[in-house]
Amino acid sequence: MTEKKTSEAQRRATKKWEENNPERKRYLRYRSNARTFVRHWATQEDFEELEEIFKDNIKKR
């Protein structure tokens, strides 16, 4: 059996934080997914579409 790098106490603390902060956890997951997509898989067409979304969003603020 392989040894885990994270202590049992740390795993419990992480689980508790995730249970107490579901919206923050979701936000961080979505942000990470978006960044990964843009860095590794986005095409020129994707960039153009995202640019339009950003421009529209900035106008609304």
Results as ranks from 00 to 15, higher is better:
Met1Phe: 09
Met1Gly: 10
Glu3Lys: 15
Glu3Asp: 15
Glu3Leu: 13
Lys4Val: 01
Lys5Tyr: 10
Lys5Ile: 01
Thr6Val: 15
Ser7Tyr: 13
Ser7Arg: 12
Ser7Phe: 12
Glu8Trp: 10
Glu8Ala: 10
Ala9Arg: 13
Gln10Leu: 12
Gln10Lys: 12
Gln10His: 06
Arg11Asp: 05
Arg12Ala: 09
Arg12Cys: 01
Ala13Glu: 12
Ala13Gly: 07
Ala13Ile: 00
Thr14Phe: 07
Lys15Arg: 15
Lys16Asn: 13
Lys16Glu: 15
Trp17Lys: 05
Trp17Gly: 04
Trp17His: 10
Glu18Gln: 14
Glu18Lys: 14
Glu19Cys: 01
Glu19Asp: 05
Glu19Leu: 10
Glu19Asn: 12
Asn20Phe: 02
Asn20Gln: 14
Asn20Glu: 15
Pro22His: 04
Pro22Tyr: 00
Pro22Cys: 01
Glu23Tyr: 09
Arg24Gly: 02
Arg24Asp: 08
Arg24Met: 09
Lys25Ile: 00
Arg26Pro: 01
Leu28Thr: 04
Leu28Cys: 03
Leu28Gly: 03
Leu28Phe: 13
Leu28Asn: 14
Arg29Lys: 13
Arg29Glu: 10
Arg29Thr: 03
Arg29Ile: 01
Arg29Phe: 01
Arg29Asn: 08
Tyr30Ala: 06
Arg31Tyr: 06
Arg31Gly: 02
Ser32Cys: 04
Asn33Glu: 12
Asn33Val: 00
Ala34Gly: 09
Ala34Asp: 08
Ala34Arg: 12
Arg35Gln: 09
Arg35Ile: 07
Arg35Pro: 01
Thr36Gly: 09
Thr36Gln: 09
Phe37Thr: 01
Phe37Leu: 04
Val38Thr: 13
Arg39His: 10
Arg39Gly: 05
Arg39Ser: 09
His40Cys: 03
Trp41Arg: 15
Ala42Pro: 08
Ala42Asp: 05
Thr43Ala: 08
Thr43Cys: 05
Thr43Phe: 07
Thr43Met: 08
Gln44Cys: 03
Glu45Cys: 02
Asp46Glu: 07
Asp46His: 15
Phe47Ile: 06
Phe47His: 14
Glu48Lys: 14
Glu49Phe: 11
Leu50Lys: 06
Glu51Thr: 04
Glu52Phe: 05
Glu52Lys: 11
Glu52Trp: 07
Glu52Arg: 14
Ile53Arg: 14
Ile53Ser: 04
Phe54Leu: 08
Phe54Trp: 09
Phe54Met: 08
Lys55Arg: 12
Asp56Cys: 02
Ile58Gly: 00
Ile58Ala: 05
Ile58Thr: 00
Lys59Gly: 03
Lys59Arg: 15
Lys60Val: 00
Lys60His: 01
